[in-house]
Structures are given as structure tokens and as C-alpha cells.
Amino acid sequence: MSNTGIQVSHLQKFFRKRKGFLRSRSTEVHALKDISFEVAEGETYGLLGPNGSGKSTLIRVLATLLVPDAGEVRLLGHRIPGEEQAVRRKIGRVSVDAAFYKKLSARENLLYSALLYGMDAKSAERRAMEILEELGLEQEKFTDPLEEMSRGMQQKVAITRALLINPPLLLLDEPTTGLDPKSKRDVQTFLERLRSEHGTTILLTSHDMAETERLCARIGFIAQGSLIAEGTADELKRQSNAASLDDAFIALAGVALDENGKSANGNGASEKK
């Protein structure tokens, strides 16, 4: 493998949930179980898994928003835990929910974000316009409050926010969920161009088989907090004698992608009491 963009080694994350007040009961959820994988610089790597499988938790650890309980992550050479501030300068993140100040315009939200990263407001505004244009958002929308935009438009602004700082590493957590087919295509084309022209390393989580197959050089299957298989789409299909990536996932994970993290035998094995 060439220079490593993302290196995840034996990553573990637990969450404790408390129920009840007088007789409180504590439940431990093992959200990430000994996850290890590598993504080369400039590679697009896809993580496929159903809801609750640990995709977003993994992205949050990589985005320095969660501290791992065990294991180590290296992003473009910087260690987590330990070098969070250096990591933050190099990553852009798009989450499934476009989190913005809804009353503020796209311009105001994007300028706020650019200033947070220490960018000059004028050049940030210019770059924001360029990205939004490439994503197919009309210029007039730039000054509209986010609350007046459709989900697809908001997601395009979210992608622009992540790209404004020219991050060498992008963490995309289901970026096209809920978008109309046209918006989805716009975003996918843009991501392809980003990888080929700028060599951006991309980690993409998704439920969408076709999207993952189109964008990702390699794919990891994640279920109940474990990375159960990885390889190219063809390798994964071959490994499970499946005709499609969807069938390959069912064969290897014992769970369908649209199920909520429960295995085919019905056990929610990740929870301990």
C-alpha cells in the first residue's frame, strides 16, 4: 500500500447507558469491536452497514468527537488520541443531517465555518461560490436562509462547508441519504472529480450499494460493531458467491442492510447487562 491516509488499529468503543432512577441499571453497548483497516492516500474507501452497526461512531472517532476506549487511529500520520488539533486542520466531515444555523443564509454559515478554520473571508466566499456552482446550486440561493432550502440543497451546502478548507481527508457519513436522484448524481460526480483531480482521501459510509460500488475502490462490511469483510466489490461478491453487493453483505454479515443492527438469528449480541 502507498502512503497511508487512514490507519485504524484494534479500535474499541463502549457506551454505557443508565436506565431507571432509584434502581438504576447499567447497560454496556460495545459499539466498535476491535476494528482495523487502512485506507491509502487518495483512495475512496466505503463502509457499508445497517443502522446501528457502528459507522457513525467510527466517523466520530476519526473526527475527534469521540475518544476511543482502546486502539489507535492515524490520520495522514497524526495520531488519535494525542494529536487531535493537527487532525482537525486536515479533515472535512459531512454527516447525514445537515447541521446548520437554519436562520442564517448559506453564505453566513459558510463564512462562519471558514473563519473558524482561520480562512480569509473574501477567498472563502469565492471558493464557496465555485464549489456550490460545481454542485449545481444556483447562485441566488447563496443568501437564502438554510431553513428555506430543500434537504438536497442543504446537503450541498454541507458538502461545500466540508470542502471549503481544502481538506486532504474527507469523512462522509451517508452524505446522499434522502437526496433526490439528480442531487445524488451531482454529489457523486463531484466526489469522483475531487478524488481524481485533488487526490483527496475519502471515507464514505452508506447504505447505498450502487453508490458505494461506483465511488469506492475498496469496501468494508460493518455489522454490530465489527468489520466482517473488506475488499473490492468484485472480491466481496466472489468471496460470498453472490451476484450483487447486497447479497454479499447478507451472506457475510448474516443481516440485511435495511435491518437495524440485529443479526439474522435475532440476537442483539452487542449489548451486555
Partner: peptide
């Protein structure tokens, strides 16, 4: 409330 806390906390500030 706005859902922006994670984005503020992951900025290099």
C-alpha cells in the same frame, strides 16, 4: 438545539 455543536468542537479552535 441547532445541531452545530459537533462542527464547532471539531474545528481547530
Amino acid at each position: 438545539w441547532e445541531g452545530t455543536l459537533e462542527y464547532t468542537f471539531m474545528a481547530p479552535v
